[in-house]
Write a protein that binds this DNA or RNA. Structure first.
Lengths: 342, 342
DNA sequence: TTTAGCACTCTCGTTATTAGAGTGCTAACT
DNA sequence: AGTTAGCACTCTAATAACGAGAGTGCTAAA
């Protein structure tokens, strides 16, 4: 639906004012604020009509108006003009990210913190998932006579480790056998190919050594699974408590902690390229229906592989947050890409 | 100060009742609850005296009593009888911890989650710090022509990694040189010995290769520092929101997130062996003065090396939480010890 | 030393009342 | 036809008044 220019101005002004103050906006307040060359009565008429059209809500008869979900939607899609981050701040962010440590988790963690500070929202992110990722390296470091730490690095830069306990003594021969098997059967394979079945047939083919080495292979398979799993990182949860008008922060925080729903949500929207904005009831999950979720995928080596998301009340500064998020996803993607391929 | 047996019974009953219900306890309520062979008037007299002695507070004249900080203290030190965890539950916890992954962080994370579920408190823990820890292994895995991932494992089982970027190409010769330096100068050294000065003199002694290798050495030193730093892990923050009478959860959560204060606090109390309980204003940090902090050190290989802590309102079930915490620190310590030395 | 009895205190929920903000409508105006 | 001043009307939020109820401390008797 297309609104008249004046209605648009009024809607935009109401949205922005409400975002800034959190108070319902009345016709008089709007008059001073919007600098339209009309009287409050005219604004009242327009506001009444915007209510009728569903763009504005009224907490009660004698209160000002607040944007409805539809109102926010129209504002986000057509009205807002995005503030860019100042260049100086961009440089600052880049600096903070580039000495984060280089691993995907580390980069995302740092990016999440930056974004949380910048936006006062809760920030979620998913680690890169790459169907073409393969096992790049496996190391086995003995810790005791029967324990060792196994470390796996995937081609997408994800590092996972696990301590492994063996029944028989971890001698050099055993380790060597293990490395041989690894380089022969696992390096260069995708993590999803490391099935239990493969492990079992492999163990069987080893005859006498089978028993000794199988704990190592099991750990290897565990690691492969871990490497493949996308993880959800969470930063700035406590920011949610700053919004006093937030109904039950507890429920929301538990929802975020659970992780899988959001991971699924993100991977489900992968095709759409730009920043996604889901406002209030537009969210599928009940726990998010009092919030807005803004998320955007970062791409590593030209392929979408994970996402960064912001969560706050529906009353957030979309015009500022969307560009910030967008900028951070770009940076994250480019840093990760740089790391993997020169 | 020693209270009469009857006063002790009354105090204990008030504490337990208040912990259970959150309501101030009156003389009548106490009568039904405590099954003392006296009348409410007698209880009133005793309560009045306990108030005078400072063990009870009164929200207002005509309300029941609630335990004062001193009251809780007396209860914790002398009155409460600790409920042990049922054996079955202990086994369940052990199982969850032993397949956590084996790395200190992983174990602590899992222990934190378990403890958070068990206690409904926020859980903090510090990674093991061991002054005698040395660098056990360093691996350098090339990622691109100019980037590599460096992984460091310390003797206390801590694994850290960082991506490193070199100016000149990362060829086999360079990598070999690096490994030689590492095994000659770094393996077996404590992380604190890896000073900038050492790095610089080392780089100088390499002559022509110096420029090429110095980024690697810098990363090595970064990693050494990371390995040495104790980290604070946080679980179950959202539990804090369940206590409705909690004043400002935001401030508390931010305080926990900051980490260093607690890390310092824990390492400051290292000598005391048993579980520490700090109630309300007994806490040094303002942010904790409406809360109780219970913490206990776990020991790896017979040496105190890190701690687990619980944070909740002063009105928590000390009799249940203290044994739970204690049990988990023991398990964490023993699992970590097992991993490192068979 | 304990206890019954009672006057007293204070909170909390309810109700009544009021000031103020904002609306929608009508009628006049451009 | 669109705009605006004016005004009656509605609803909230703040304040006060009030009574019920819970709990106390004290007194006097057991």
């Amino acid at each position: 639906m297309q609104l008249s220019e004046r209605k648009e101005k009024i809607l935009a002004a109401i949205v922005e004012r409400y975002i800034a103050t959190g108070e319902p906006v009345g016709s008089k307040t709007l008059l001073e604020f919007s600098s339209l060359p009309v009287s409050s009565a005219t604004i009242r008429n327009e506001m009444a009509e915007l209510s009728r059209l569903g763009f504005l809500d009224q907490p009660h008869t004698s209160a000002g108006r607040i944007p409805s979900q539809l109102g926010y939607r129209y504002y986000v899609d057509r009205l807002m003009n995005r503030y860019e981050l100042p260049l100086q701040e961009k440089r600052l962010i880049e600096a903070r990210l580039s000495d984060a440590g280089g691993e995907p988790q580390q980069i995302l963690e740092q990016a999440g913190q930056v974004l949380a500070e910048l936006t006062n929202c809760a920030v979620v992110s998913t680690t890169p998932s790459d169907d073409n990722a393969v096992i790049r390296r496996v190391e086995l470091v003995p810790l005791g006579t029967h324990t060792a730490m196994m470390v796996m690095l995937s081609s997408s830069g994800i590092l996972k480790s696990r301590v492994c306990r063996t029944d028989s003594e971890l001698n050099l021969e055993l380790i060597e056998t293990f490395y041989n098997i690894v380089s022969k059967h696992f390096i260069g394979k995708s993590a999803s190919e490391v099935s239990i079945a493969l492990i079992q047939t492999l163990a069987l083919s080893l005859g006498s050594k089978s028993l000794a080495i199988s704990p190592l292979l099991v750990t290897l398979s565990d690691l492969a699974q871990l490497t493949e799993q996308t993880q959800l990182l969470l930063e700035g949860q406590s920011n949610l408590l700053n919004y006093t008008d937030y109904p039950n922060a507890y429920e929301l925080m538990e929802f975020l902690r659970r992780g899988e729903p959001l991971t699924n949500l993100f991977s489900g929207h992968k095709t759409e390229n730009d920043t996604n904005v889901l406002i209030g009831k537009e969210n599928f999950y009940r726990e998010l229906q009092d919030s807005s979720l803004i998320f955007s995928h970062y791409s590593v080596g030209g392929k979408d592989s994970g996402a960064l998301g912001l969560i706050g009340p529906t009353r957030i500064d979309y015009a500022r947050l969307i560009p910030s998020l967008k900028y951070l996803t770009e940076i994250v993607g480019s840093i990760m890409s740089d790391t993997l391929e020169d």
